[in-house]
């Protein structure tokens, strides 16, 4: 590739020329390439799924004549999946699970960000409380299940409690960490502008910590889904986890697989939605990082 200096034939001025002309050259180019790049992104999205499609087809073909009790043909699974979850009343199990998840995850997110922010704001209290928090944090929440069941009994509120208890940590600790990492110059800037404490949090601290808060929320999402299922496996009379366990116990292995596939679908949709929200919320961060990488 010929360098700019070779093309202009004047190595001394070319860097200045380049510096003077690049911004104005770049902007229209960027706008024009936007539609082309969105097409390209769509295509690369399709391209990324090709292996997934191959696996599905292979599963379908290889399992077509299966007589194994544990690995029924995919065709049968898909058929049962339609009968049970789309036409049938297994849907109520899905709704029950999703309801508990939604409430639990929302509470975990709110508590996580709220308590994390308080621990940051009152650093002295935070330092005293931290060891206790970390001690509770390392307890696998599943181990708390018997205790929580004993205290709260079996039911929706107990399941929600389990989800909140497990999912609150990544968001809380990431919020605390993100807020601690705010550049002190930004806080000085807030002081110079006479921002109130509340406005400083809203305008500077929350957005500044948002990349880490979102990372925490994403981790919390995964843990929330896991605990949703675990709580249903252990102590519940509804939900997808309950459905899977119950199907396995009455040797309806095909039905069991449908529940597992439904969980995979729900997990994928939730992750997809999360990433979509993240792209909007962190658009500035993604953009700034891309600029940084280009140098």
């Amino acid at each position: 590739m010929p360098t700019r200096a070779e093309r202009t034939g004047s190595p001394d001025v070319s860097p200045i020329l380049a510096a003077a002309t690049t911004p104005s050259h770049q902007r229209p180019a960027r706008a024009a390439s936007r539609s082309a790049s969105s097409l390209r992104r769509l295509w690369s999205g399709i391209w990324r799924l090709w292996f997934f499609a191959v696996v599905l087809v292979a599963w379908w073909v290889l399992s077509a004549d299966s007589t194994s009790t544990f690995f029924p043909p995919l065709r049968n699974i898909v058929g049962r999946l339609y009968d049970l979850w789309i036409a049938g009343d297994a849907r109520t199990n899905a709704w029950s699970s999703l309801q508990h998840f939604a409430i639990g995850y929302a509470l975990a997110g709110l508590f996580g960000v709220g308590v994390g922010a308080l621990l940051w704001k009152f650093a002295r209290v935070g330092r005293a409380v931290s060891p206790v928090l970390y001690f509770v944090y390392v307890i696998p929440t599943a181990a708390l299940l018997p205790a929580i069941m004993a205290i709260m009994g079996i039911g929706g509120s107990m399941q929600i409690t389990i989800i909140v208890l497990a999912a609150v940590w990544p968001t809380m600790l990431n919020t605390l960490d993100g807020m601690r990492g705010i550049d002190p110059i930004k806080l000085d800037t807030a002081r110079v502008m006479h921002m109130s404490a509340l406005r400083t949090v809203r305008t500077v601290v929350l957005p500044g910590a948002m990349p880490q808060i979102m990372a925490g929320l994403r981790h919390s999402l995964q843990i929330g889904v896991i605990m949703m299922v675990v709580s249903e496996l252990v102590a519940s009379e509804s939900g997808i986890g309950f459905f899977i366990l119950e199907a396995q116990q009455r040797f309806a292995i095909t039905d069991m697989w449908t529940g597992i596939i439904i969980l995979a679908l729900i997990g994928s949709v939730l992750t997809f939605l999360f990433v979509a929200v993240e792209r909007v919320v962190l658009a500035w961060y993604i953009g700034a990082r891309a600029v940084e990488k280009k140098g």
Partner: peptide
């Protein structure tokens, strides 16, 4: 910091709000 006083810090990338 008095009301009628403003400060410009050395490193713009640290004082501006990128969001």
């Amino acid at each position: 910091v008095p009301d009628r006083l403003s400060v410009v810090f050395q490193d713009y990338s640290r004082s501006l709000f990128p969001w």
